[in-house]
């Protein structure tokens, strides 16, 4: 499913994560910046992909700026950004 509009969710505060999602060029591109990238980078990428798959998003540019969010917070922010991007609030 396509992302219709640029949307974001979350904040840059500690324990939160900022997710920005924009219409893609035919593929799913994910950029990740995280204070715990060495320890949790792979885990974060896997969760982001899983949530986007659940949301049936396969064509989008996604930017993640993580400030040490727990998995449940990351899932919530990606889902919110995807729903907002689909215009499905």
């Amino acid at each position: 499913m396509d992302i219709k509009q640029i949307a974001s969710a979350g904040t840059m505060e500690s324990s939160d994560v900022y997710v920005e999602i924009a219409p893609g060029n035919g593929t799913l591109e994910i950029s990740l910046e995280s204070v715990v990238v060495q320890q949790f980078g792979d885990a974060i990428r896997a969760v982001v992909l899983e949530v986007l798959q659940e949301q049936q998003v396969d064509n989008a540019n996604v930017r993640i700026v993580d400030r040490g969010a727990l998995e449940c917070v990351l899932r919530a922010r990606v889902e919110t950004a995807a729903l907002r991007g689909k215009g499905n609030v």
Partner: peptide, 15 residues
């Protein structure tokens, strides 16, 4: 409101 609803749902679910 939408973001909080989903965040609270996940908190209930995972924590």
């Amino acid at each position: 409101k939408d973001a909080a609803r989903i965040l609270v749902r996940n908190t209930l679910r995972y924590m």
